[in-house]
């Protein structure tokens, strides 16, 4: 290590990029002890408020969550009885939990794949557009920025049975027989809410893909075009491999979002009709705050997090492997 440091100090001109960041060890070796002490003192001072906030509002409630899981807390009892794993066994046998879990799975599958397909399509469309691309970016990304309560209200009108735009459009194109109260029908309610969520998520996926596409080698795409590859083949074999790490990252984010979906369902249907749109998030909320089953709700919330962790880790690993390969190439 010391030889590395001296070699670098002896021949700084040989560096390819003069502003490249040097390894930390080099800094330390060149920093006098007084400075190091002053730096450490200031460092602790600057981190302290953050650490205090994180400890009180993040770590403490997380530790409490683990405690709540093993007791039967109703919100008032200062010394709730210890019940071990009863919350978990009850959870595993609760048909409502499984129904909600099934809805989460549907949500994760459709709510991840649809925005990725649409978002990628839009990004490829806007990719080489020069004029007006800011306009498109605003139009597509804006829905993602809006508060979900407002989104829920407006889409409630679009799905409205008698005067809503969806049914009106269906009647205009001669599909009036399909018209229905989309949010009131247990068969369609979940998919109607999902449709709204997809509308809101597409822009997020689009913006990320668009920025990833900027790094794609255009000459390679042109060469493939001259070789007679059609649009789909170019996307599949030339573009996608180059943006794979970003593709996996977007998948992870939307997929994990599907585990903890809450706002949009809570606002649009509240879990109804007859539990048709109940997801784990709304079920945990109503258990804790409407039925005063604090511990049961907390257990459910904790389980949601725990089952989502393997997905996050797996995706992250795959992504890291791919981006390392990308750097080697």
């Amino acid at each position: 290590m010391t030889t590395g440091a001296t070699a670098e100090a002896a021949a700084p001109e040989q560096e390819e990029t003069p502003r490249r960041r040097r390894p930390w060890r080099t800094i330390k070796a060149g920093t006098p002890r007084v400075t190091r002490k002053a730096q450490a003192r200031l460092g602790v001072f600057m981190v302290a408020p953050l650490v205090a906030m994180v400890a009180v509002f993040l770590l403490l409630p997380m530790v409490n969550a683990i405690y709540y899981v093993f007791v039967d807390f109703n919100g008032f009892d200062p010394d709730p009885p210890w019940i071990g794993f009863s919350n978990f066994t009850e959870l595993a046998q609760d048909p409502d939990v499984w129904a909600a879990f099934k809805n989460n799975v549907i949500w994760i599958v459709i709510g991840t794949s649809a925005p990725i397909v649409f978002g990628l399509g839009l990004a490829v469309l806007v990719w080489n557009v020069r004029r007006g691309s800011v306009l498109y970016r605003i139009a597509f990304f804006l829905p993602f920025m809006l508060p979900q309560v407002a989104v829920g209200v407006v889409w409630g009108w679009i799905y409205e049975p008698s005067r809503g735009w969806l049914n009106r459009v269906l009647e205009t194109v001669g599909l009036g027989s399909l018209a229905k109260g989309w949010l009131g029908d247990p068969d369609t309610a979940l998919y109607a809410v999902l449709g709204t969520a997809i509308w809101a998520t597409v822009g997020f996926v689009f913006v990320i893909f668009l920025s990833a596409l900027r790094n794609v080698d255009v000459d390679l795409v042109d060469a493939a075009r001259l070789d007679g590859a059609n649009a789909f083949q170019r996307l599949r074999h030339i573009i996608l491999p180059q943006i794979m790490p970003v593709f996996l990252m977007v998948t992870t984010i939307t997929l994990l979002g599907g585990f903890s979906v809450f706002d949009i369902v809570f606002v649009m249907t509240g879990g109804g009709p007859a539990g048709a749109t109940e997801v784990l998030g709304t079920y945990a909320y109503s258990s804790a705050f409407q039925l005063n089953r604090i511990s049961y709700g907390t257990t459910l919330a904790l389980v949601i997090t725990v089952i989502s962790i393997p997905f996050a880790v797996w995706m992250n690993r795959l992504q890291r492997k791919l981006s390392l390969q990308g750097m080697g190439a």
Binding site: V54, L58, L60, M62, N64, A65, F73, A284, T298, A301
Partner: peptide
């Protein structure tokens, strides 16, 4: 790492105990 934990654990996980806290 402790701070980054906040990026990994959704708010959802600890929102109920936080209410009582």
């Amino acid at each position: 790492y402790l701070v980054v934990l906040g990026l990994l654990v959704p708010f959802f996980t600890y929102m109920i105990p936080l209410y009582f806290q």
